[in-house]
Design a protein around this nucleic acid. Structure first.
Lengths: 132, 132
DNA sequence: ATAAACCCTTAACTCAACTTCAGGTCAAGA
DNA sequence: TCTTGACCTGAAGTTGAGTTAAGGGTTTAT
């Protein structure tokens, strides 16, 4: 499969596929006789795997580290588990933060319906006043 | 309250407080006679408000826009509501993605317990082989 | 056999969000 | 009064994550 087809299947741009590979976000893709990338299902599997973490907001460096460890085999399992536990922690924290933001937004949208400001204009005016 | 105290209370660095103010993420902070920032409760309120959105992953530019609109009063309500609805949408999408990542992580952690690899070593070896 | 459409690499550029720096002002204690 | 430490501004530098450009091979349809 050409890089263009892989781009279509994954929804990642051709340039980004090359970029991610270069920084080690997934293993080097097989090449054909004339040096062009030839993606197979295994390639797509790795890409999907890495992208799942990326979409969760994990830093590319952490993903790279995990993948490189996975390629080194069994011995790196404890290290990988560590990375996953850290990631889980981050994601749970992020989840809670997003929920908090959503709560604020919903509260505000609700008060908009009621035609009264969550930060009331008199608060704003008081503040403007103070700035004289 | 000095900028240092404000930094301690908000958990934002002194430099970042100045930076955020400069880009309009919250209104200009009151100054004392000799031109130094003098934070009050209202200042902290705005900071907290902006940071809630930031933690949810909203772009600083969007937060800036919202705050500037809020300072312009009633007439900007529809525009602000629009921003909030967009933000809500983003956050809900992000929430779903994070949940997906968490599912994958939990699955992997679970298979680690069972001492079997989610991406099995024979898969990896097959791939390495192919790279000859 | 040549143009069009792909592919390759290396390196430079961009953008958001910080962070550091240089060069100065101000305030409180010894 | 002199020093030390916190504050100020404006500008330059850094980092992470791409994106674009330059210069060159390859494949395919005409």
């Amino acid at each position: 499969m050409t890089i263009k087809e892989a781009a279509e299947r994954t929804g990642i741009s051709v340039d980004n596929l090359r970029y991610y590979e270069r920084i080690g976000l997934f293993p080097e893709i097989p090449r054909n006789a004339s040096g062009m990338r030839d993606y197979d299902e295994m390639s797509l599997h790795w890409i999907d795997f890495a992208m799942r973490f990326k979409r969760g907001g994990m830093a590319l460096e952490a993903i790279r580290e995990y993948i490189q460890l996975a390629l080194q085999g069994e011995a790196t399992k404890p290290a990988r588990k560590e990375i996953l536990l850290d990631a889980k922690n981050d994601l749970e924290k992020k989840m809670a933060e997003i929920q908090e933001s959503l709560d604020v937004i919903n509260y505000k949208l609700d008060t908009y319906e009621r035609k009264c400001e969550p930060i009331t204009m008199d608060m704003v005016n008081a503040w403007k006043e103070r700035q004289h």
